[in-house]
Every structure is written in structure tokens, then in C-alpha cells.
Amino acid sequence: MAKLIDVSDLNIYYGDFLAVDSVNMTIEPRAVTALIGPSGCGKSTFLRSLNRMHEVIPGARVEGKVVMDGQDLYDKDVDPVAVRQHIGMVFQRPNPFPTMSIYENVAAGVRLNAKRMKKSDMDELVESSLRGANLWNEVKDRLDKPGMGLSGGQQQRLCIARAIAIRPSVLLMDEPCSALDPISTLAVEDLIGELKNEYTIVIVTHNMQQAARVSDQTGFFNLSGVGKPGQLVEMDSTSTIFSNPSQKATEDYISGRFG
């Protein structure tokens, strides 16, 4: 299921403003890739460009290639909606649908697309997704209760269950723990460790310890100067980035000298 993504010369714009400048990156399958860097350096923007969520913002556009399975996701024949069915996303703040129950939230990806599915298949899909998100045991007795009634950490895992219920190849996570307390954060981090056996995972995080704990590869983004676009400074295995980075800026950031 998991897939490799190859990014080449990707420029990301908001209108005329170049936000991220010529990124080249290979994202390995069945691994966790962490993106770190100071605020506003474009790592979230880059993440959103991987499943074409970036262009939801009016005026936003992208130049360059994002290739998955030999197919450029920005090819003009490609439907951005279909891309998002293959590359799931989890957001900074948990965002379950307020009008839906826990069950309906997990089933949302299928139901909102008006796909027909037998009740037993749907039950099975919901259960396996909730189990996959380590949430099944906590909610199995109240699947018909509103998703908004869960705690923040549970809501976030519900959102992860919702994302993996459409069986994506890749899972993007945009600071998934920044709105959570430490215990919930730990639960989500454990979950990420398990999910990488099946999915390609890309996670944006502000928390360097988190990047060190969960990721196999780490990319460091930084602004090339005030008012200039963000860029990928370096990318390597997590242990290398945190012990022996090749760039001075990376070392400064990791040792807490700025950011």
C-alpha cells in the first residue's frame, strides 16, 4: 500500500508570492518522514502541496513535479480530488464533523463520496480503521455518540481513523499533536510508529524531540532570509540530522540557537 513520493523542483506560490523555493526530496515508503523548521518557513505549505490541498486557498498554485508511482500528481489530467483519496491528511486541530456520530465520522470518506457499501462491510471498515487508530477499545460502546464528545486526543485519533478508512497510500500529518496534552501526544506518537508499517507517513512538527522519536528521515526547512521564500536546507536520516548535520543552520536550529 505504501508508496514512494519523488518531489522535484517544487515551487509553491500564494498568488505572486513565492512561499517555498525549489524543493527536491524523496519520501520513502513504510517510513516516517519528519519536516522541521522555524515558524513560517513553508513546511506546512509544502505538506499541503503533496496532496493538492494547497490549491484550495484562492490564488495558491504550484510549479514542479510530485511523482508517485510514476504519475505526476500535478499533471493536467490528474484530478486533485482523486489525489486526496490516495494521500490522506490529518490536521493540526482535530476536526471531526460535528453533525456526525463516531461511526459516521469514520465512514465519512466513503459515504460523502456516495459509494455504496454493504452494512457488514461498512461495520468491518469502521472497526478496522478505529482499531488501526488505537481507538476501538475506547469507543466501541458508543459509536453512535457525536464525535465532538470525545477528548482532544481521542478526536485526533478519530480523525486519523477517518483518514485511514479511505485506505490511502500516504498519510500526511500537519502538527497533529500541537493541540494535544502530553498523554494524548504519546498515544498519537505510538500510533504513528505502528502506522508506518502500512503507510508512507509525512509529519510536520514543531517539536524536535517528537521528530527524533518518531521519524526515520528528517528534512529541515528554513527561510533563506527575511521576506524570502522558504527552502529545504537539508534532508537525511533522522539520526544524522540530529547528531551530525552537514549544514550550519541545521545545527543551530537543532541546538536551539534560533527558531
Partner: peptide, 11 residues
């Protein structure tokens, strides 16, 4: 997959 997705092409 759920509902059997096809390709990435415009549909």
C-alpha cells in the same frame, strides 16, 4: 479499497 477507486485521472 472502499468503493474501489480508479485512477488519478479526471473523472
Amino acid at each position: 479499497g472502499p468503493g474501489g477507486r480508479g485512477t488519478l485521472a479526471t473523472g
